[in-house]
């Protein structure tokens, strides 16, 4: 049994649809290839970037080593003495005068305590109680507890 005439596609129309399909498929294929190419290119570029960054990292590590060396050289006793003698015109002491301070030592400030060595710190000052801190806030006292 034949379908009604008005339902049958015209041959020209059928051909044009196939061409469209092929074109779409071709387009998709081309797009896929472009994406693939772009991806490969991106990966390659990222790979080169990683290589370059690793080189940079290695160079920075080496540079860090060199900076450590420079710091150590600048802090060396030879250099300190040379600077003291030539730039600051200091001389080796020929005699020593010891200063005996008979005043009761004050507890060093928290900032100074941090800078001192453990054995030089002495006993820690007693902590302020909450009400003393409150009074200090208003009065602004600088005395030690």
């Amino acid at each position: 049994m034949h379908a009604p005439v008005f339902l049958r596609p015209l041959p020209a129309l059928r051909a044009s649809r196939w061409r469209r399909r092929i074109a779409v498929l071709g387009g998709l294929g081309a797009l896929g290839m472009v994406v693939l190419l772009a991806q490969a290119s991106l990966v390659a570029s990222t790979g080169y970037n990683v290589e370059r960054l690793e080189d940079t990292k290695a160079a920075l590590i080496r540079s860090n080593q060199q900076l450590e060396d420079s710091i150590a050289s600048l802090r060396s006793l030879d250099r300190i003495e040379r600077e003291a003698r030539t730039r600051l015109k200091m001389v080796t002491p020929s005699s020593y005068v010891y200063i005996r301070v008979e005043a009761r030592p004050q507890a060093p400030s928290p900032l100074l305590r941090k800078a001192l060595k453990e054995e030089e710190r002495g006993p820690a000052p007693p902590a302020w109680s909450w009400w003393e801190q409150l009074i200090r806030t208003f009065v602004g006292s600088r005395s030690q507890p």
Partner: peptide, 23 residues
Amino acid sequence: ARELLVYWRVPPSEGVRVARITP
């Protein structure tokens, strides 16, 4: 010994010039 005692800030025992600072 002298250099190390100064380096370690060991206070002298006696018999040296000592400047006193009193409050």
